[in-house]
Design a protein around this nucleic acid. Structure first.
Lengths: 237, 237
DNA sequence: CGTGTTATTGAGTAGCATCAATAATTGTGG
DNA sequence: CCACAATTATTGATGCTACTCAATAACACG
């Protein structure tokens, strides 16, 4: 099922260390993290990193590529609960009940660093700053989810898309890109599923944003022409 | 502003210990928890436990009463992000960035146990099972939020209310009540804000559920007449 | 007992969904 | 590498859900 090309490496020399798990850790702590994160795993496009119901054993840091997480309802319909880019953590949903509640799927050929949860617990037991750090990562996940609740509960289609595109832009910028031009790794349907909209509405709304001169979009190739206006739209009605 | 009637007490003798923070802890660990949770605080109806922007110092276990948490947008509109009953934890939103992102407001005269976060970190550093336990509590918060995302992203008004009422019922049952009859502590507007609906829609939908014989509701007094059908409605289209 | 808050109900409407047809793109097997 | 199938995206016409506006009623509080 899943390809298991696993490679041993470490965090302290990783070029993502300013974005990812190691953020803000001292050299000594980094050394501990290196011991913890010793395995990488490739996940090719469309492949699943874990499924809902799987036993929870590890969390994952996206080393390269993009993922989506999705929850499937009892009816079989499913909803995207998030998109994860390099440096972001996947799998925290499993901690609550020792098994995953969502699937994680690669949107392009990707690679993750595997962080065995039991060992993370061990080591953060010994190094308090690592513990604090991990708590913060979980806390940010909670904040992020609550912001999505806000979006889904009270924004209109145009606002939702403006907020979504702004968020993508900011995350790209944090990764050293311009944040002005980017390639969408997800389909319109996946965007819609995440934003609580149908694919036709996503398509129409993107067209409208383009007509209004806020963005330029051709297939997956996106340019944010007036980012300020886009952000304003997302927050001010 | 806030009344600070604080009382010293402990978890090991608390009648909520099967619902609350102590769930599943051994006597030894309970002893540690007692040391941690030594202060209670009363919050009268309408009063605020903490505000968005406040420095994060503690999390809180609801000892008695009911709270809501709400996020305020830049426009000044706000959205309810959760309702907390006895034994449930409030304030985890503060961990991510060391300050709260939501307000917590008492919906009736209430009381919380104050759990200083720094000391929680200290003690879970020493007692691994406490650390694991706390991680699980945070993990469940993430799961809960993602389920709300699902509700907001893909359910219709009737389903949302059915899911909401079912959830209230289950939580009441977990607290030793029948789960059939209960008093709503929140207004229709607060319910609507939580479910992403307007007050008129909440009112109309409750009336419809009553006409269909699923519930009986008079003001805040609610009886679930056919809980199975209600749950079925919440999950099966 | 009066005032402000909360809730209900009706009429009309806006926004998004649905249904449908077509186009563009991607992936696949020969 | 091309042809065909499957997937993804766009656009239009129509319908339905939930919102808005408005009036009234019921209740909570001082």
């Amino acid at each position: 099922m899943t390809s298991l090309a696993e490679v041993h490496l470490n965090c302290s020399t990783c070029n993502l260390k300013d974005l990812c798990m190691p953020v803000g850790l001292s050299p000594v702590e980094l050394e501990q993290l290196d011991e913890l994160v010793s395995v990488r795993r490739k996940v090719i496009k469309g492949e699943v990193l874990f499924n809902a119901g799987d036993d929870f054993s590890s969390i994952y840091a996206v080393r390269a590529g993009t993922f989506k997480t999705r929850i499937t309802t009892q009816e079989g319909t499913d909803q995207v609960t998030g998109f994860q880019m390099t440096g972001e953590i996947i799998g925290l949903d499993g901690i609550g009940n020792n098994n995953h509640i969502c699937d994680a799927v690669a949107l392009e050929d990707s690679e993750v660093c595997v962080i065995p949860y039991a060992r993370l617990d061990d080591i953060s037991q010994q190094f308090r700053s690592l513990q604090t750090h991990f708590h913060r990562i979980m806390g940010r996940e909670i904040v992020k989810d609550q912001n999505v609740m806000l979006l889904l509960g009270s924004m209109r289609a145009e606002q939702r898309l403006a907020a979504f595109l702004s968020s993508l832009s900011e995350r790209q910028r944090a990764r050293g890109f311009s944040g002005r031009e980017m390639v969408l790794r997800m389909t319109r349907e996946e965007i819609g599923s995440y934003l609580g909209l149908k694919i036709e509405t996503v398509s129409r709304t993107l067209t409208k944003l383009q007509k209004d001169g806020l963005i330029q979009i051709t297939q997956r190739q996106l340019t944010l022409l007036r980012l300020d206006d886009l952000k304003h739209l997302a927050t001010h009605l």
